[in-house]
């Protein structure tokens, strides 16, 4: 006991950590203090944990394959089952019906998270990488390349997102893979603008001037000075975008733009779940929506918290 305390004390005394790591751990401690952001982070992490569990152990959902809703089908006795505690965990949130078979709501909603989160991460990761690098270079270089990039993003910004997504999905094909490509095409300009604005500001700083004076090339400046400083607003935007993309996917499935009736996706479940509405069955519509709502709220809380923590003006 005494030993461990002593050794801990010694460790903090002697070990001098890299200033960058010190900075990150300070940021993390600030984030821990922000209670609302913590709630958002915990819920987000739970969502990711469920999605991860679905990938690794699909049998915990009672099926061997969660890539299609067909494996959840229970063709017997098509009767509405209200959410209740007495039906076992499988039917905890009630059931839903489409194509005259019944589907338990809780497992199909959980199974959907894998795809919703996986595709959101994929789109945001590619969009953010491409957009941030392009925006940083254009903002740093200025002149002609900057002008071209800004005009291109202007055009993307002049069409509402959903319409742009519709047009690109129409071009590529109405399948889920193509919808993912379409969303990547329309998603990078956000990050390009964000990074460009930040790069313009960083360009005027003294340390960049010093680096340039000592012979750093544009690329070296961008990668070692601009990008690290652009990252914090990019992370905030990423956390907000995870929710937006999940919603956009849900809308595209709900409208039937991506038509795959057995694809496990929350908007698809809502779309298919409207058949019992005439007899007063509301839960196939309400419950998947709550899954979307909860995730969007928590990533928003997390994003707002991150913004407060990472903003040097509000920090400390």
């Amino acid at each position: 006991m005494v030993d461990t305390i002593l050794s801990q004390g010694r460790k903090t005394e002697t070990k001098k950590r890299h200033p960058k790591i010190e900075d990150y751990s300070h940021t993390f401690r600030l984030l821990l203090k922000n209670r609302v952001a913590m709630v958002g982070m915990i819920i987000t992490l739970i969502y990711f944990a469920i999605a991860f569990l679905d990938v690794v152990y699909p049998q915990y959902l009672g099926v061997s394959n969660i890539n299609t809703l067909l494996s959840f089908r229970e063709p017997t006795a098509v009767t509405p089952l209200a959410p209740s505690l007495s039906n076992g965990w499988y039917n905890l949130l009630g059931n839903t019906e489409f194509f005259s078979s019944q589907f338990p709501l809780l497992p199909i909603c959980l199974a959907s998270l894998k795809f919703d989160l996986g595709y959101s991460i994929f789109i945001v990761a590619i969009g953010a990488t491409v957009g941030t690098i392009l925006g940083s270079i254009a903002g740093f270089k200025g002149g002609y390349s900057d002008e071209v990039l800004m005009r291109v993003t202007d055009v993307f910004y002049s069409i509402p997102f959903l319409i742009l997504a519709l047009a690109f999905i129409f071009l590529l094909g109405r399948y889920i893979e193509y919808a993912v490509y379409a969303l990547i095409i329309i998603w990078w300009p956000i990050y390009a603008r964000l990074a460009r604005g930040q790069a313009l500001y960083i360009k005027s700083m003294k340390f960049v001037e010093a680096a340039t004076a000592s012979g750093a090339s544009t690329m070296r400046n961008v990668f070692s000075h601009v990008l690290p400083n652009v990252l914090s607003p990019v992370f905030v935007q990423i956390s907000l975008d995870l929710g937006s993309i999940m919603q956009l996917f849900a809308v595209l499935f709900f409208l039937g733009v991506i038509s795959d009736p057995y694809f496990p996706e929350l908007g698809n479940i809502i779309n298919q779940g409207q058949s019992w509405l005439a007899v007063g069955v509301w839960w196939p519509i309400v419950i998947p929506g709550i899954f979307i709502l909860l995730f969007t709220i928590s990533v928003n809380l997390l994003g707002d918290g991150l913004r407060d923590v990472l903003d040097p003006k509000l920090r400390r």
Binding site: V251, F254, L255, L277, A278, I285, G289, L293, T296, N300
Partner: peptide, 23 residues
């Protein structure tokens, strides 16, 4: 702000819609 708009529309239909939920 976080609510998917189609879901909000469906909720309002269920709550206030004529002849959606019987009675």
């Amino acid at each position: 702000y976080a609510m998917p708009i189609f879901w909000l529309a469906l909720l309002l239909q269920i709550l206030l819609g004529e002849n959606v939920i019987p009675g």
